[in-house]
Write a protein that binds this DNA or RNA. Sequence first.
DNA 1: AACTCGGGGCT
DNA 2: AGCCCAGAGTT
Length: 343
Amino acid sequence: MNKLTIDYLQSSLLDYYSSFARDLPWRKTKDPYKIWVSEIMLQQTQVKTVIPYYERFISKLPTVLALASAHEDELLKLWEGLGYYSRVLNMHKAAKMVVKELNGMMPHTSKDLLKLPGIGLYTAGAIASIAFEERISAVDGNVHRVLSRYFGLSLTKEALVPLMYEILPSKRIGDFNQAIMEIGALICLPSLNPNCQSCPLKDNCVALDMNLIDSLPLKPKKLIRTKELYTLLMITDDASYYLQKRPAKGLLANLWEFPLLKGHLSQTEIINYVQSLGLKMLKMMELPNTSHAFTHKDWDIIAYKVTIINPQPLNDFTLVFKDDLLKNYTLSSLFNKYQEYYR
DNA sequence: AACTCGGGGCT
DNA sequence: AGCCCAGAGTT
């Protein structure tokens, strides 16, 4: 690539960033721990969603030592509703490694960051460039889209890394990486109508020039969501509810849930089920149906609140006071949609 | 290279 | 109703 192109990209992007960068909480610091937390939260999650979670997480756990010392239950509660829960468990493992093996000092290079669980090519590059000014790329979905369009290329994110390495400046590396992401987030939108007229790169954008904006980057093959039917039972004596912990692997791993039975059960089947647990039913109330979309599944849920008169320990369930439930037990947001019925 | 893993913002 | 989000780990 010629020097003129590189100079143009560097000055356009850095000038844009100096003028228009959003004032985001994690941009007020160079603390690698805080940058790390923000980058993990931002994986497949929009900025607007992350901000309140980030503020609360940093306020409760301001250092890597605090994170390493935290209990898993507390971490999941801080992550409740954010999704992709393995992110926070991997971060917990990594924090323990940093404290135990690195004397509490965050790795200073992308190569060493990459060794920590939950930190992949993008996140290692983001932390190293933003917190330590390492000359390394950070190719996320935004960068992929902006570069694909600007150069008129159809390449994977991995294939864009060497290209990024050519155009990276020798200083303000973190700003440069964030500038491309910023343009991807604010201007070079994935929708059919990006704001090309206000883009600092509009004069030399191949996709804009050749009318390829809509076709770049190449759309991934669209996924198939399978429908699954469930019956949710809130079994209560009005003071406590039966919960169960989901398995350590798979969807919503390690989270708590109300008894969730496969299929849409009839009221007779529910009565039989509750009796089979040894519980005496006082009344049963039908709750609103809900649907919940995951990446690959679509759950169609019917729900009942079942009031019983003889609460007792059960093998597969834990009886939890409702105040304790709200404070200390992490549920998927699909269960929290029913919060007005158990609070 | 293709799956899996949440939840929500935006159109 | 569908797309995609400051992706990573597993198969």
